[in-house]
């Protein structure tokens, strides 16, 4: 039971972290109709900027400054890059963001090299917040949960309670009509892109010390981010939240419970071969849950797409 609670909390941390990337990406997708392949790269930039700033003035200023800088870079990318490419159609846009992802990775390697940075959690958070049956839960993870929840609540408030949020929601469905009513939609797009990338950067700064700050971190998370927003339903903020948490828990539990395929096969009535290693199906009999853990999100995506092609909470055609 105590292990279960620890896993729930660990999955929550992973899920909420994922959500901070997915929420921005899914909003950007709804507005522009194009997937931003470089989204996870902004997460990586956040981690590196956060690290660099922390070496001069400490972790906390980095947590504030890095997302602001990345947000401005994101807004500039939309204004001077994507907006110009937009008129040539979706394929050039996709290629543009794909190229940008490669470019950011190269730039990061050029300045910081290929090895992992010594980006560490701030000293004040280096203690065990509490422990459950001997499993210490670090205060830094509690802090991550609060930051992510805070970001979600602020975002939800802006989107549902403010006028700018209403304009964004309307522009998700009919950007041209919103513009025809006199609203500066191009600027709103730029703002959403900037805020979305800044949120990815916040995720980068807080994840950097735990998951590692290295040039592969964007690729590592990039594909799972796409899987998540497809599962949640493209353009749906709630869908992104549900799917992020689902995948967070799925991955955490799969890694924690060493269930064996053999037990499952025996349970459904098959008999285990005496010499498993010599058996024709030895790979199947020796399979364990932690081994298949990494592919479970993709499996979930396929199942969701078969049952609900628009994703769990999505409304528009994907």
């Amino acid at each position: 039971m105590s292990l279960f609670i620890v896993n729930i909390l660990d999955g929550l941390v992973t899920g909420l972290l994922l959500f901070m990337l997915c929420s921005g990406l899914t909003l950007i997708f709804s507005m522009m109709g194009v997937l931003n392949f470089a989204h996870a790269s902004f997460y990586m930039l956040g981690a590196y900027f956060g690290y660099q700033i922390s070496t001069y003035v400490g972790f906390w200023p980095g947590l504030i400054l890095a997302p602001i800088i990345v947000g401005f870079i994101g807004a500039a990318v939309e204004r001077y890059g994507l907006r110009r490419v937009h008129k040539f159609g979706h394929v050039p846009e996709l290629i543009f963001t794909f190229g940008l992802a490669l470019l950011i990775e190269e730039v990061v390697q050029y300045f910081w090299g290929k090895s992992q940075m010594a980006f560490e959690a701030p000293g004040v958070l280096k203690f065990a917040a509490f422990s459950i049956a001997g499993n210490a839960f670090p205060a830094y993870k509690v802090f991550m949960i609060f930051i992510a929840m805070g970001v979600f609540l602020v975002l939800l408030y802006i989107l549902t309670k403010t006028r700018i949020g209403m304009i964004i929601q309307a522009a998700l469905s009919y950007p041209e009509t919103v513009q025809n009513l006199g609203h500066n939609v191009p600027m709103i797009f730029m703002g959403v892109f900037g805020v979305g990338t800044a949120m990815a950067a916040i995720a980068g700064v807080i994840a950097g010390p735990v998951l590692g700050t290295f040039p592969g971190m964007a690729v590592l998370l990039g594909s799972i981010v796409f899987v998540t927003i497809v599962i949640g339903g493209l353009g749906s903020l709630w869908g992104a939240l549900v799917a992020s948490l689902l995948i967070g828990w799925l991955q955490t539990f799969a890694a924690a419970y060493n269930l064996r395929m053999a037990d499952l096969l025996v349970a459904i009535g098959l008999t285990e071969p005496v010499d498993v290693a010599q058996s024709m199906l030895s790979d199947l009999w020796t399979l364990t849950l932690p081994q298949v853990g990494p592919i479970l999100p993709y499996l979930l995506m396929i199942i969701v797409l078969v049952i609900r092609p628009n994703g769990l909470l999505g409304k528009r055609e994907t």
């Binding site: 209403m166 919103v178 609203h183």
Partner: peptide
């Protein structure tokens, strides 16, 4: 909300 979005900035 639809109606109020008709108001200009």
């Amino acid at each position: 909300q639809n109606l109020l979005l008709g108001l200009k900035p």
